[in-house]
Design a protein around this nucleic acid. Sequence first.
DNA 1: ATGCATTTGTTCGTATGTATC
DNA 2: AGATACATACGAACAAATGCA
Lengths: 259, 259
Amino acid sequence: MTDQPAFEQVRPVRLYERIVEQVEAAIANGELVPGQHLPSERELVAQFGTSRATVREALRVLESNGLVRSRPGDPNGPEVLPFTARGLSKQLRRLARAEELTLAQLLVSRMMLDATANRLAAVLRTAEQLADMEAAIDGMRVALDLGYDAFGEADLAFHEAVAAASGNTMIQVSNEVVRDTVLSVISDRIAHARNSKALMRRSLEHHEQVLDAIRSGDGPEAARASLQSLYDYYAGYVPAVERRALRALLDPAPPTGAG
Amino acid sequence: MTDQPAFEQVRPVRLYERIVEQVEAAIANGELVPGQHLPSERELVAQFGTSRATVREALRVLESNGLVRSRPGDPNGPEVLPFTARGLSKQLRRLARAEELTLAQLLVSRMMLDATANRLAAVLRTAEQLADMEAAIDGMRVALDLGYDAFGEADLAFHEAVAAASGNTMIQVSNEVVRDTVLSVISDRIAHARNSKALMRRSLEHHEQVLDAIRSGDGPEAARASLQSLYDYYAGYVPAVERRALRALLDPAPPTGAG
DNA sequence: ATGCATTTGTTCGTATGTATC
DNA sequence: AGATACATACGAACAAATGCA
């Protein structure tokens, strides 16, 4: 059964990469816990048997990925950081800028994430989480007269309350990151339309629909309403050809009808 | 209207970070295009006015983020790379590990991603992409008699064809990562059941349903069938209490009926 | 509150193997 | 095939920053 040797392609693996791998592995499997400290640079030099420059290159990479932080003069050595979504956010933004991710793609992702979070929240929410959502909606209602900044803040609070109630960290974090990325991509274009009170009122109505559905435990309706809300709010910024993808998420009815 | 000064937090910004920022910016705004080359390390030392080690730390960070690649002896200098989703994939994997996602959470994410990809693919697929899916299904059919390894491979090919046809890089990459993670979590438990021909046949039927829906452009049906397929295949491995979340994604009908 | 020992940030010099012309 | 310029990696050094006695 010895088919063929099946050699793998080899590429030169730098010393600093091996150090990165070892530290990453140690963090991944729990040997190193956030708050703990790595040995000092010179100690690492001894342990890895390389020069200080090499160790430092590895530390810089780990640092830029948000895994550790080293400060000058700290005798404790580089600190292992708790997880943040900063690296994920950075990569997404990069992807968006490279125009591998169009606004339409980002919005599709956002609709998917938000709709699913709402659907889950309708079933899984606790009374306390429901109260958080209601408080956020109240905040939006009050903020109608305070301008978009306050309104946007309350809006954000609602979506985060829903995401938390979904009980799914993956969806929660992804949604957060995608939401930020969407805003960073079109914030300039959307700025002039923001203060339209009519838009805010409409948005509020949509959110109230979603909340009603969640309150009554109707997941599909919560999902439907949130999809419609996002579509109405953002579709105008998407080129017409790409709007097909957004619409594909909307109607549960097959498109066998008239055009 | 001058509320308060609103000072920002300051933290020491390393020299290597500034270099990274400048190069990233140059790539982001198109000054540097994939295929182009940065000046040699020594030339960069002159331009940035720092030492070699500092420039190298910056290059290592850029390299680990997949933006450039430097080879020893290359007189052209470090090459600017075309964009890949490798960095995003790495960060997503980190999220999955760090947050200690339960199997239920991973499966919910997988169902969400796969259903959306199918829904989009039903509307956006090209003829060629449809052919890829059909080829994959044919492969599954053939592999019924070849055992699970071949079957799983064809299965994977189908899902990747669908993801590609969704036209959404975010969904494609996320789905890939989540799928891998799910398998790595339960591969041991599922191994003994793998070779059940009945299971494979049932899985094939489900996939054929999905393909039919995609072929006829029926997004909602494609989503429904894929959700049902994943649920049937994996729900048994999820603790009963957590199964509620999975079921919440299934029925479009509100749960107002009998318990 | 002060100093001291230690650590990091950064620089310079050098030896070695490599890719290109 | 050789010359040249390059990246990899090492070692020593100094200034600034930190934590602890």
